[in-house]
Simulated assay, not measured.
Amino acid sequence: MKHDNLTDVLEFLLLGFSDDPERQPLTFSLFLSMYVVTMLGNLLIILAVSSDSHLHTPMYVFLSILSVADIGFTSTTVPKVILDIQTHNRVISHAGCLIQLSFFYLFGCLDSVLLTVMAYDRFVAICYPLLLDSQLQCLIVSQLTFCTNVEIPHFFCDPPQLFKLSCNDTSTNKIFMYFIGAIFGGIPVSGILFSYTRILSSVLRVPSTGGKYKAFSTCGSHLSVVCLFYGTGLGVYLGSTVSHSPRKDAVVSMMYAVVAPMLNPFIYSLRNRDIKRALQRLLNRTA
Rank of each mutant, 00 (worst) to 15 (best):
Val36Trp: 06
Thr170Asp: 07
Gly186Arg: 03
Thr172Gln: 14
Arg122Asp: 10
Phe216Ile: 08
Tyr178Asp: 14
Ile126Gln: 12
Val150Gly: 13
Pro261Thr: 03
Ala278Gln: 04
Thr7Glu: 15
Leu200Met: 06
Gly41His: 01
Ser53Phe: 01
Gln135Ala: 09
Asp249Thr: 04
Gly231Thr: 04
Leu32Gly: 12
Ser224Arg: 02
Lys2Thr: 13
Gln24Val: 10
Met34Ile: 08
Leu106Gly: 12
His54Asp: 12
Pro207Thr: 07
Ser33Asp: 02
Thr87Ser: 10
Phe156Pro: 05
Val236Met: 04
Phe104Gln: 12
Gln100Ser: 06
Val236Leu: 02
Ser18Asn: 04
Lys214Asp: 10
Ala250Ser: 04
Gly185Arg: 10
Leu44Ile: 04
Leu43Phe: 04
Leu263Gln: 01
Met262Lys: 02
Val141Lys: 01
Thr74Asp: 06
Pro246Gln: 03
Val37Asn: 02
Leu165Ile: 12
Arg122Ser: 13
Ser195His: 09
Ala48Ile: 03
Tyr213Gly: 11
Tyr105Asn: 12
Ser33Cys: 03
Asp133Ile: 14
Phe266Met: 02
Tyr230Ser: 02
Phe146Tyr: 12
Phe163Glu: 10
Tyr178Asn: 15
Ala215Ser: 04
Ser51Asn: 11
Leu44Met: 11
Gly211Asn: 01
Ile92Lys: 00
Leu193Pro: 09
Lys80Glu: 15
Asp70Gln: 06
Val91Trp: 12
Phe229Val: 11
Cys109Asp: 14
Cys109Ser: 13
Leu10Ile: 10
Val9Ile: 15
Ser221Ala: 08
Pro129Leu: 09
Arg281Asn: 13
Val78Gly: 07
Gln24Ala: 11
Met34Pro: 09
Ser112Tyr: 00
Leu43Lys: 02
His56Ser: 11
Asn168Met: 05
Val189Gly: 02
Ser240Arg: 01
Lys212Cys: 01
Leu114Met: 11
Asp158Arg: 00
Leu136Lys: 09
Cys157Tyr: 00
Glu22Met: 07
Leu10Gln: 15
Leu6Val: 00
Leu139Ser: 09
Lys2Ile: 09
Ile275Gly: 03
Ile180Phe: 01
Ala182His: 11
Leu110Asn: 13
Thr232Val: 06
